[in-house]
Design a protein around this nucleic acid. Structure first.
Lengths: 151, 151
DNA sequence: TATTGTTATACTCTATAACTATA
DNA sequence: TATAGTTATAGAGTATAACAATA
């Protein structure tokens, strides 16, 4: 095998979209060991837990908007958590279409156990960057998110 | 709905693994408009094209290793490209298990059209960063890749 | 008529495992 | 016995579209 030498070359390992995708998969795999194997949560479920744990009485719609998940994905994740007794809900009196969500006692317990572990993993990843790099990296993420309308 | 104020809080929109995943999806969607709608390529196929276009006579195994795709995913992508007449292959004389890959004339034409568009998209994304930020960002990606054993 | 949320269905993408053939 | 590559099968994960209930 031999390298070609065309005009504009595209080397996949240096191509930012490829790198981002590969990095996101690796980080996600790294993290999912916690919430999947240890707590039996899938990504959408973990995102619901994280959202409801922080913003009590939020609705499925809010979860979908803040995590950018499709409403069917959110609906199924919530249903699974309700079945497992981790999340509870009841129609809101002022508008019975909405169903404010909150963690049950058991859900809160799981959340309280989960969050420090997730934050630890995030830190364990970021230790490979200097403090300055970490700031710069997060700033870049913010700019890109803003640029892409994700913020 | 109301914010809780526990000890260590995890705000998903600030949680790096979540941000990376969301960003990667958005960038990928942004890019796939090119190779999917315009050239009828799926991500694995596009990765094979990009690899073979640069490293002539590489094998499926090489593609899998350099793009971190499973061999079945690579195999199917190559098969699709061969069917479409974009890639050709023949067993290597010295070891008939291996099948060096190369772009056909048509494949090369597509590659030559595709690469500048992909690079343009990458640049169009990175313009939201200053030159210094861009360097810092790529450096951080490199450190993280190294740290995770992706490099 | 619009909105919140659910569900039936189908589709995309992927890996596991078993396979062929070569070495 | 190991490796390159293929394929059958099944499993995630997801969205589209139609739906019920409420506003």
């Amino acid at each position: 095998m031999s390298a070609s030498n065309g005009r504009a070359t595209l080397h996949l390992p240096e191509f930012v979209p490829f790198r981002l995708n590969r990095l996101a998969v690796a980080v996600s795999d790294h993290l999912s060991a916690i919430y999947r194997e240890r707590f039996g949560l899938q990504i959408p479920e973990w995102r619901v837990m994280a959202t409801v744990g922080l913003v009590r009485d939020c609705t499925a719609r809010y979860v979908g908007e803040s995590t950018r998940m499709h409403k069917t994905r959110v609906s199924r994740a919530i249903a699974a958590l309700v079945r497992r007794g981790l999340v509870e809900r009841a129609p809101r009196a002022s508008d019975k279409r909405e169903m404010p969500l909150r963690l049950t006692r058991m859900g809160r317990r799981m959340y309280t156990a989960l969050v420090p572990l997730a934050l630890e993993r995030e830190q364990a990843l970021l230790v490979c960057l200097t403090t300055a790099q970490r700031h710069a990296f997060q700033q870049c993420l913010g700019r890109l998110e803003e640029f892409l309308g994700l913020a």
